[in-house]
Amino acid sequence: MALYRKKAEKLQDSINESILKRMPDSEAFSFAGFDEQEVERSGYSNYSYWRSTLHMFLKNKVAVFLTLIVFLILLFTFIQPYLPNQIDPFLVNNDPKTGLPFRNVKPNDVFWLGTNSIGQDLWANLWSGTRTSLFIGISVACIEAFVGIVVGVLWGYVRKLDFLLTELYNVMDNIPTTIVLILVSYILKPGIYTIILALCLQGWIGMALFIRNQIIIIRDREYNLASRCLGTRTYKIIQKNLIPYLISVIMLRMALTIPAAIGSEVFITYIGLGLPATIPSLGNLINVGRQLMMSPDLRYQLIYPTIILSIVTVSFYVIGNAFSDAADPKNHI
């Protein structure tokens, strides 16, 4: 608070200085042309948006802890195959005595999370699946955010585009995702990139609409009117006035898109258009496990993928909220 006040006083001083001291009286009341340098000078402060955001975020201990967890999970999915005593997720483990597969073996010291119905190691499958699902989630979130923000900002700010984009949204939002999914799976082979493409194909427009609505709400706020009156360029208004205001909401949405994309993968698997089981994913593991829910002896096959999925989801939810709180400039004071 004190810091802020100091900053404000400094700014006031500099303005006073420039207007009052350096100008003769006769010029003080004449129209001044637009001067880029002057604008930069008046806009200067040593306040750094991102530093403050990070500072606020680090204050939230739970969020920091969960960020660490997500990071560790992500890291572990990559290093897990290189650890000692790991079993290839695709390998069918045979009982050396009978030569037949170790089917539905409960967790023990060889198979840490047990085996599935054909004798594959669930521990290895779990991490391989987590890697796939996180990759899908993060890719979708990034692509959606990038396309969504660009389109959304233009949509909200440039009125000429409003009609066109609203129309595009109405059309895209109302073409059933299933038709798109099925057509995509006809054209392309079922696989990770097909799923990412299918999820992004319609997802970005949701993000764009969200941004557009936020922008419409704040577009005509007084400080933006003021900026416009001062002749600030559109891209600059977007970059300096709007985006920081939106960061909090964008981050929250992105953080939620990751688990949502993983969830969609579960849904797509459910309707039979998901990844082939040869590519382990949380969706595949949960879908297989779901059918075993009523069999107490086999339930362990559902529990572990669900736990990982829950941890990932919860983490992103909390991180997203914490970051969005931290990113709100109002909270920086």
Binding site: R103, N104, S117, V288, Q291, L292, S295, P296, D297, L298
Partner: peptide
């Protein structure tokens, strides 16, 4: 009784 749950049924 699906192949995947047969083991459980055989036991229980």
């Amino acid at each position: 009784i699906d192949t995947s749950i047969v083991d459980d049924w055989l036991n229980n």
